[in-house]
Write a protein that binds this DNA or RNA. Structure first.
Lengths: 191, 191
DNA sequence: CCTACCGATCGGTAGG
DNA sequence: CCTACCGATCGGTAGG
């Protein structure tokens, strides 16, 4: 067994922070996960909080990049919404540990680190809101739509996906995206 | 300052468990919240875990009672859905601490207590699913609706409400309920 | 990366 | 409900 890299440590931290929470994970737990003594981790990082910061920031960055890619190109608001949803879901499902930690453990961050993370979250939400507003102006979305609350509802659905969806279940990822976009655009009522 | 009741202790536990998490709360934190020494809490409860169990079970019970009231009476599926949504939101907003703990800290429960809580959650979700299925059969909801995923989407929205809604904000509770029911039934697309 | 350790804090008990 | 305390565990350091 070769030596562990700093990245191994961060990845293991993401896994445990995401599953048991920051306060539910000790440095000795983390060491055990990697076959190391807890104290050995301090040759890779200088504190437990530093690990949390790194994991949470990586989660924030993943969402930000995803939004940029989804919203950059052309297309109707509906098409861009689909790309936004697909991107978000891909980020969540391909990085369950980091995104879980980003979504649930930000409160364990020291205040100085928490602030910029909340700002990143607001920025991401704002980009979705802008997209929804454009869809209203283009006539694709209902004229009485409130982009703010609608954006929150959509993100509520997206952020919960990792709590129930499994890749080996009956629904593949494309169908999941379609299902969410359909629910969001046309709802459950009969036409 | 009179003596504290067991109920005071449970309520304080709900507050701290809901805000900082179970593992982020020490018995001494809890004592401080009540103006007591941490060790004094053991004249009211026999363990920290017992407090978590009590809080989580109270959260589960609140949702269960709410569903029973909402689904018992007559009405179309849409009407009962509105009552279900209104009930859920009332439970969440009137009991933020207990419901937050119920929704986020169940993983900190010892396995023997976690199982029945997950079952309670599934039961509640199942009741919503049944309601949605009835709406499909009555023709109120789209015939191609999958009640299972739709139920998950609706609960995702409902369970996130406490993360952003404030009673003193621009939206009152009735409007919030209407907003969620509208989003759920007709979606954001223009008609 | 380990051994050996530090002071602080943890959940919890005994005795009043 | 407090005082006084228990053994275990915490995050972290020194020195190799």
């Amino acid at each position: 067994m070769s030596r562990r890299s700093r990245d191994d440590v961060v990845r293991a931290a993401a896994r445990l922070f995401g599953r048991r929470g920051y306060h539910g994970t000790s440095m000795r737990d983390l060491g055990r996960e990697l076959g190391l003594m807890g104290s050995s981790l301090y040759s890779h990082v200088s504190s437990k909080q530093e690990l949390l910061v790194e994991v949470v920031e990586s989660g924030a960055a993943l969402f930000q990049e995803s939004a940029e890619k989804a919203l950059a190109g052309e297309g109707t608001a509906t098409e861009r919404l689909r790309r936004f949803v697909a991107g978000h879901i891909e980020v969540v499902l391909d990085n369950v540990d980091a995104t879980r930690t980003f979504l649930n453990e930000a409160r364990a961050l020291d205040p100085e680190f928490r602030r910029p993370i909340i700002e990143a979250r607001d920025l991401y939400e704002g980009e979705l809101r802008t997209l929804l507003g454009e869809g209203v102006r283009s006539g694709e979305f209902r004229s009485d739509l409130d982009p703010k609350t609608a954006g929150i509802y959509i993100l509520s659905i997206l952020n919960a996906v990792d709590r129930w969806y499994h890749d080996d279940g009956p629904l593949d990822r494309d169908c999941l995206v379609t299902s969410i976009v359909d629910f969001t655009t046309t709802g459950i009522a009969a036409t």
